[in-house]
Write a protein that binds this DNA or RNA. Structure first.
Length: 192
DNA sequence: CGTAAGATGAAG
DNA sequence: TTCATCTTACGG
């Protein structure tokens, strides 16, 4: 896909407005990407900053390689690897605006929580949340996006989005780098 | 080996 | 602000 042939930060920004779709056994879920973060090779917060390892290997795959990792022992996050093979960079998907299969998203989120129900804007407003809601799992590691049941669809409307660029969330190393992007005024982002 | 820290989320 | 929970990275 043309989009994935650009530099990582450009991709992180341009991915906003695209839809992420997952066709699973249980049903199809989809949402518009409203928040992303870029992780670069020379960036201390990047899992691939030091060297290639079993965990970060997917980041070194060709652009479009899916990288799913576990964090804090209980949550998972999805990334789409960017740049050429052997360059460890990726874009973390941080929030979606649900468009298809909201009932299934609700069901999946409820199964792993004690809450009664989630408001639509709480379904995918965070990297760990959207992974649950979309039914994404670690078995998808190394899958190629667009060649699997998890794929991207281009934006439907042509109007350009107002994009806010800011610092990333939840990291200590490289905390000052402006590598986070989100759609201005979106009620579906993890944090303003 | 032992252990601390981590790209989080929900409850108090 | 605290806790749940565990893999990975890195030092000894």
């Amino acid at each position: 896909m043309m989009l994935l042939e650009k530099d990582t930060l450009t991709i992180a920004k341009e991915l906003l407005g695209w839809s992420l779709v997952h066709e699973s056994e249980e049903g199809t879920t989809a949402g518009i990407i409203v928040e992303t973060e870029g992780y670069l090779q020379d960036d201390p917060a990047c899992h691939a900053y030091r060297k290639k390892s079993p965990r970060n290997a997917p980041m070194f795959g060709e652009a479009g390689t899916i990288y799913v990792y576990q964090i804090y022992g209980m949550h998972f996050c999805v990334n789409i690897s960017t740049n050429k093979k052997d360059i460890g960079e990726a874009v973390l998907i941080r929030a979606l605006e649900p468009t298809i299969g909201q009932d299934l998203m609700q069901k999946r989120r409820l199964a792993l929580s004690k809450v009664q129900s989630f408001r639509p804007h709480e379904l995918c407003s965070g990297p760990g949340k959207l992974v649950q809601a979309m039914g994404i799992h670690k078995g998808m590691n190394n899958w190629m996006i667009q060649e699997s049941k998890l794929y991207l669809l281009p934006p439907v409307n042509e109007k350009p989005l107002e994009i806010i660029t800011t610092t990333r969330i939840g990291i200590t190393q490289g905390a000052e780098l402006p590598y986070r992007f989100y759609v201005e005024d979106s009620k579906f982002v993890s944090k303003k």
